[in-house]
Design a protein around this nucleic acid. Sequence first.
DNA 1: CACTTGACCTGTCCGC
DNA 2: TGCGGACAGGTCAAGT
Length: 291
Amino acid sequence: MPELPEVETIRTGLQKLLPGRQIASVLRIWQKSLLSSQQDVDGFLCGACITGVRRRAKVLLIDLSTNYTLVIHLKMTGQLVFRSDAQQFGAGHPTASLIGDLPDRSTRVVIKFSDNSNLFFNDQRKFGWMRLLPTTEVQNLDFFKKVGPEPLAADFLAKDFASRLQRRAKSGTKAVLLDQTVVAGIGNIYADESLWAAEIHPSTRVQNLSQPKLKKLFVAVQDVLRQGIAKGGSTDRNYVDSEGNKGSFLEFAKVFRREGLPCPRCGTIIQKIRVAGRGTHICPQCQKELK
DNA sequence: CACTTGACCTGTCCGC
DNA sequence: TGCGGACAGGTCAAGT
């Protein structure tokens, strides 16, 4: 799924494409993919203009001129792809070879704009959701009340990172990195890459990490997230950006999906193990568990 | 309190 | 070629 770098890449793309467009109609192919407290969701969306696109953690926020906001979580397989009218049947368009013409069988919601362009919400596994809320109520969602700080915020410092991790001193480091209430936006890919960069075994309890190790992990987390954004995110299976393009970060990944290949640092064969219920990639030489 | 499991779903891959 | 099972990047609720 989209983690912070993927969602940020989508946000940047949509921010260039959507503001100023007016919603003309909404097609809900799978009802549960678009939720609202309002009975008449379509009526609340139609006629609204998009004013901006924000991100918090792995959540996208599309603000509307009506003071409502579309809150969107892509979960594992969600995609938000914009197509102008001219692209709809353009078999020769570069995006056509990646995800083909839209809608396709994974399309759950289509937002059509007054200029005949479309925003497609595709979601193979139907775990993702879009939700229409008054803008002022977004911050009242349980998720936003509990979610931790943005790891790339200018005022988020190594000491803040360390103290937040240490609230879960007895837990394994990877489980804590994945906990969105500790730090926002880290998922399986960037957790594995950060732990490799910091030379920490994912099962190591936080209480066994020295201060320098915690600092090293903080730097690693920021580095891999920034690199992920710079490469347009990671495409494993489903991820594409707002124009249907894949991200290239995985070409630069050091351990993720590289089991059986040599560690770029020491040459030891990378292993895939299971930690915190998740597939986990490590170099068994560089990342020894500290007891 | 911390961890695991199951649920939400579809698709793909692997072994028989 | 077909079929069963495991697995896939996230989050939440419930159980231990």
